[in-house]
Write a protein that binds this DNA or RNA. Sequence first.
DNA 1: TTCGTCATGTAATGGGTTACATGATTAC
DNA 2: GTAATCATGTAACCCATTACATGACGAA
Lengths: 201, 201
Amino acid sequence: MLELAILGLLQEAPMHGYELRKELATKLGTIRAAISYGTLYPTLKRLQTAGWIGTADTADSDTIPPLTSKRGRVVYKITAEGKERFAELLAQVGPETYDDAGFGVHFAFFSRTDRATRLRILEGRRRRIEERREGLREVLARASDRLDAYTLELQRHGLDACEREVRWLEELITNERSGRPPAASAGETPPEPPRPHQDRP
Amino acid sequence: MLELAILGLLQEAPMHGYELRKELATKLGTIRAAISYGTLYPTLKRLQTAGWIGTADTADSDTIPPLTSKRGRVVYKITAEGKERFAELLAQVGPETYDDAGFGVHFAFFSRTDRATRLRILEGRRRRIEERREGLREVLARASDRLDAYTLELQRHGLDACEREVRWLEELITNERSGRPPAASAGETPPEPPRPHQDRP
DNA sequence: TTCGTCATGTAATGGGTTACATGATTAC
DNA sequence: GTAATCATGTAACCCATTACATGACGAA
């Protein structure tokens, strides 16, 4: 997941680690907290060793690092192999693609994913959430007398979130099928033109 | 978190590992997927070594395990020290208490938590979610032109979830303050008798 | 008798974190 | 000049997972 995210961001623009972390945080802020440097930097090295990313600066001028050991910022950019790898990871859909983290990252790069794959992922995710939803409904139906009020409240809140996400996914799937891009536009859009989005009728 | 959850469940009834896993799944189904045996059993051993839980069967009859090596089910029950430990963990509120996992587990055992602590946790969680919400709002306000439609859609959906959770927490906080139990009742819960539970004095 | 599920466990591995250490650059 | 933030990196650790191995028990 991290690998996919890093390659995806570097595909948009070359960046150094620190910057990457921030971009990661804004792009995947809904999914997970900011990644730690202890993960980020070793990962970058790994990706470089694999040949998927390269450092811009060392490649540019002299390869000899300054003797003063003043580490400057290291700007990474994606390589041709890296782009291939990214495309491969992006198209690689499995069970992990449907859990929170996997889905989130894949979704965040949907604009680089073909529509067929997008649909597959959205539908897989929907199924996953529907299963969770059914599990919660069963608990609420069968075990509600065995559980205390707080636990029940937690389940109800979870169920609610599931139902909401299923509806959201449904909408996205419909949009995909009809060829429309995602709803877009929110914030303080003034005149609010088309926005043909309809809630429960 | 796992430790807290196990001690909490064993406080309700003695159980063997396999059963515990299922109970864990229904109680914390909203928080996380079922725990793996590779985690569960070593953890149980650890808790036993620490003296917080004990096996019922080996203590009962002959301590000598059958030569046929037929491992039977090992029923664990909480010890007096375990109960103390549980109370300690339950009251131990820190930053991790406010992230998804920590909050979920704590909330699931709210019926064993005193009201002051419940309020502290709910308010801490609310603050945490409000921060996340503000972060998302800022991204949507400042970076919306830099991000593609799918990424934006993800942020919007995340923002929505945050707003919803804050409202939920607000309601719970109000209820707590006015001394009412959580909303309860959703399905077809009939009158639901008082269920006299006392907080630790 | 065979299949599914109940039941317990270990070893290898993974994916991350925290704590620590270093130093450059910018704003005041 | 000093504080905050930018910036990179390592080592130790933690929590959990997967894959594997074993075996009991009940139902078809």
